[in-house]
């Protein structure tokens, strides 16, 4: 089963993402900031990261830079932000994100991106029951 790490300091957002991702049948792990996320990464590989930007201790940019600096299989990362500026997207890409999306994310849209980044074929995208 594909494992996804959801990193966000807001419990509400984590719950939102978790509910969407679990419905798609993925295994979701949570982290409340970049530091904790790095600990989770040290414990096991993930197939995808969902990263918030603004977080205490270590923010999303910092986490991605650390992650991309590691000698390990590099899974795609989606940066989830509330800013829709082009510059914000560039900052995300510079630090190692592969996709930049803006909150609030519609469930279908998030699902679509996640499936694409996990390489799921269209028939794998059955409507969630």
């Amino acid at each position: 089963m594909k494992r996804i790490l959801v990193i966000d300091d807001a419990a509400t957002v984590r719950l939102y993402h978790r509910s969407i991702l679990e419905e798609l049948g993925f295994e979701v792990t949570e982290a409340v900031n970049g530091l904790e996320a790095l600990e989770r990464v040290a414990e096991g590989d993930f197939d995808l990261y969902l990263v918030d930007i603004n977080m205490p201790k270590l923010d999303g940019y910092g986490f991605l830079r650390e992650l991309r600096g590691k000698d390990m299989p590099q899974a795609p990362a989606i940066m989830v932000s509330t800013e829709a500026g082009a510059n914000d997207q560039k900052l995300a890409f510079l630090s190692g994100a592969n996709l930049y999306i803006v909150k609030p994310v519609r469930p279908e849209r998030l699902a679509s991106h996640v499936l694409t980044l996990l390489g799921m074929t269209p028939n794998g995208r059955g409507a969630p029951s």
Partner: peptide, 28 residues
Amino acid sequence: GLTDNPPWLSGRLRAVATTLEAAFASIG
């Protein structure tokens, strides 16, 4: 297209490769 050359470039490139492979797989 980014022209910076950060220490984590290698990780970034590998992540892009993984992403591209997955994206193509997703449309079969």
